[in-house]
Nucleic acid binder design. Structure first.
Length: 416
DNA sequence: GATGGCCTAATTAGGACTTCCGGTGT
DNA sequence: CACACCGGAAGTCCTAATTAGGCCAT
């Protein structure tokens, strides 16, 4: 029988190269996308244990398109509030809290809030972690950089900025694209962004000067460039393949840098609702923003596509949260997700007798994983025939995923 | 007693900032 | 004058890898 740890190990170590595995290139890669709404409910105090019945589970899985952006904002704020006001005796970072909350032990398989497992026959597209980005864009070997890779919970500054740029609570209010095609963005409110970063890093004294030093180090490392002649304007040298681009939209007010910015009136510097609310959504979606030639996607209140972007019809409701809309990019495969994937799969394992008869020839557990996913696909196909009317795969976000990646097979946990 | 396997704690090495600073440009 | 910006230098924090030591079974 497949060992849990083995399964996890293979997901953790092989996700980048699964599609390259000799002899198994036809087997699917696994992408997990978490739908934030359940997270928000959980953040708001809904215990995981309460999600044990399938009915409950399906309720969580359902992500209703938000008709009102205000309601959505309220949800966000509630979630943000519960996160940011949560006492963390050990000064846990949000990521830590996140992982502790949603990364169940394997013993908690049943209550794991997995919301979606996407199986792609194409393998993982663009699954580059930061070292690979370095390798890709600086010509330096990734091996050295990977030798000391950081934990899955670490969010780098550049990732943080990308998260902010994909967070409608912050973009374009505090940070915005000035030229999405070129990856150029502006820190509209540098102080606010710095404070958010400081909050994120548990560095209450963080300011733009300090954060700026970190940004300048990115010049050397080829992650950022400075846009000459423009203050507070930087350029990503590369962007994730499926970056979500928020442009200035109606109802979103930019706040230029000034002393009246909301976050500056409190002891901890970042206690204002509007600012605090930005952190959770960023942190909830701590997917690593990996580097890729821009294959951009503009979403927002006013969703725009860059001129160079291939036209891609978007069926996403504009009011939906960005994190909900996060596409299936490779960055979704994170170490922090891996146990969830495994747990979900293992749950399915319980119903799949034939897995035991598999005969892996090499990359054993990867093979087993692939076989399992094949079984999942079969189950999905069977389930689709029986499901009437309401199909989770018809949710806006997932529907979009299928449009964008035609060969995707989307599975939800309700398929079990 | 020797050997090997396992576990744990301590140490080491490195990355990613953070802090401080002096300086320049706008 | 304030602020953005620059880059050197030293430090902190965190993580992964390595090493050392103890325990146990053979």
């Amino acid at each position: 029988m497949l060992q849990q740890s083995e399964l996890i190990f293979d997901f953790a170590s092989d996700h980048v190269n699964m599609s390259q595995l000799m002899g198994y290139s036809d087997y699917p890669a696994v992408i997990v996308e978490q739908v934030p709404l359940p997270h928000q409910l959980l953040y708001a105090g809904l215990a995981c244990e309460q999600i044990q019945t399938e009915q409950d589970h399906q309720q969580l899985l359902k992500v209703e398109p938000c008709e009102s952006g205000e309601e959505e904002t309220m949800e966000t704020l509630v979630a943000a509030d519960s996160l940011l006001n949560m006492d963390c005796p050990d000064s846990l970072s949000l990521e830590q809290h996140y992982s502790q909350t949603f990364l169940p032990s394997l013993g908690d398989v049943i209550t794991t809030p997995v919301t979606q497992v996407t199986v792609s026959a194409e393998g993982i597209v663009g699954a580059f972690d930061q070292p690979q980005w370095h390798s890709l864009h600086t010509g330096k070997p990734a091996s050295r950089l990977q030798s000391r890779k950081r934990g899955g919970n670490t969010l780098y500054l550049w990732q943080f900025l990308m998260e902010l740029l994909q967070d409608r609570q912050v973009c374009p209010r505090y940070i915005k694209w000035t030229n999405a095609n070129a990856g150029i963005f502006k820190l509209v409110n540098s102080k606010a962004v710095a404070r958010l970063w400081g909050k994120h890093k548990n560095k209450p004294d963080m300011n733009y000067e300090t954060m700026g030093r970190a940004l300048r180090y990115y010049y050397q490392r080829g992650i950022l460039n400075k846009v000459e002649g423009q203050r507070l304007v930087y350029q990503f040298t590369s962007l994730p393949k499926d970056m979500i681009y928020i442009t200035d939209g109606e109802g979103t007010k930019e706040e230029e840098d000034d002393e009246n910015d909301d976050i500056s009136g409190h002891d901890d510097g970042v206690s204002d609702n509007s600012d605090d609310s930005t952190i959770p959504s960023s942190d909830q979606s701590v997917e690593e923003e990996d580097s890729h030639p821009p294959q951009k996607k503009m979403l927002t209140s006013s969703v725009k596509a860059p001129a160079t972007q291939r036209s891609r019809p978007s069926h996403r409701p504009s009011a939906q949260r960005d994190t909900v809309l996060r596409p299936t990019n490779a960055s979704l495969i994170q170490e922090q997700h891996l146990p969830i994937v495994s747990a979900e799969m293992l749950r399915t394992f319980q119903n799949l007798q034939k897995v035991q008869s598999l005969q892996p020839r090499g990359h054993a557990s990867v093979f087993q994983t692939a076989q399992l996913l094949g079984s999942l696909c079969e189950q999905q196909a069977a389930a689709e025939g029986s499901v009437e009317g309401q199909d989770e795969t018809s949710q806006p976000g997932q529907k979009t995923l299928q449009v964008e990646t035609p060969q995707l097979v989307t599975l939800t946990s309700s398929d079990q």
